[in-house]
Computed example of a mutant assay.
Amino acid sequence: MLTLTATTSAPTLFPKCKTQRRRFTVLAADDKFPSFLPKQMEQIKDPFARKLANRIERLPVNVSFSENSIMSSCVKPLVQSKQNPVVLLHGFDSSCLEWRYTFPLLEEAGLETWVVDILGWGFSNLERLPSCDVESKRQHFYQLWKSYIKRPMTLVGPSLGAAVAVDFAVNHPEAVENLVLIDASVYAEGTGNLAKLPRAAAYAGVSLLKSFPLRLYTIFLAFKGVSFSTSLDWTNIGRLHCLYPWWEDATVNFMISGGYNVSRQIDQVKQKTLIIWGEDDQIVSNKLAVRLHCELPNAIIRQIPNCGHLPHVEKPDSVARLILEFMQDYCQKKAQFVPMK
Score class of each variant (00 low, 15 high):
residue 208 L to A: 11
residue 218 T to W: 01
residue 218 T to C: 05
residue 230 T to A: 13
residue 208 L to E: 11
residue 204 A to H: 07
residue 230 T to E: 09
residue 212 F to T: 13
residue 213 P to R: 08
residue 205 G to Q: 12
residue 215 R to S: 12
residue 212 F to E: 14
residue 209 L to P: 01
residue 226 V to A: 10
residue 199 R to T: 11
residue 200 A to R: 13
residue 226 V to K: 02
residue 222 A to Q: 05
residue 209 L to E: 02
residue 202 A to S: 15
residue 227 S to G: 12
residue 204 A to C: 09
residue 208 L to V: 14
residue 217 Y to I: 01
residue 221 L to K: 15
residue 235 T to P: 02
residue 230 T to Q: 07
residue 214 L to S: 10
residue 215 R to H: 08
residue 208 L to F: 10
residue 205 G to C: 08
residue 215 R to M: 13
residue 220 F to D: 11
residue 205 G to L: 15
residue 217 Y to S: 15
residue 219 I to F: 02
residue 227 S to N: 05
residue 207 S to T: 08
residue 219 I to M: 14
residue 231 S to C: 15
residue 219 I to V: 15
residue 233 D to R: 02
residue 225 G to E: 08
residue 225 G to S: 10
residue 216 L to C: 07
residue 214 L to P: 06
residue 211 S to A: 11
residue 202 A to R: 03
residue 226 V to I: 14
residue 226 V to H: 03
residue 224 K to H: 08
residue 199 R to G: 01
residue 231 S to G: 15
residue 221 L to H: 08
residue 217 Y to C: 07
residue 221 L to T: 13
residue 216 L to S: 12
residue 210 K to N: 10
residue 209 L to V: 06
residue 231 S to L: 06
residue 199 R to H: 13
residue 206 V to N: 02
residue 220 F to V: 05
residue 202 A to K: 03
residue 235 T to N: 09
residue 227 S to F: 04
residue 222 A to E: 00
residue 206 V to Y: 01
residue 210 K to W: 06
residue 203 Y to N: 11
residue 216 L to V: 02
residue 218 T to Q: 12
residue 209 L to D: 01
residue 235 T to A: 08
residue 217 Y to P: 00
residue 222 A to D: 03
residue 206 V to D: 00
residue 225 G to K: 07
residue 219 I to G: 00
residue 220 F to E: 10
residue 211 S to E: 13
residue 222 A to V: 02
residue 206 V to K: 01
residue 216 L to N: 12
residue 232 L to D: 02
residue 228 F to A: 08
residue 210 K to L: 06
residue 214 L to R: 15
residue 227 S to H: 07
residue 227 S to A: 12
residue 228 F to H: 09
residue 211 S to C: 08
residue 225 G to A: 06
residue 213 P to T: 06
residue 234 W to M: 15
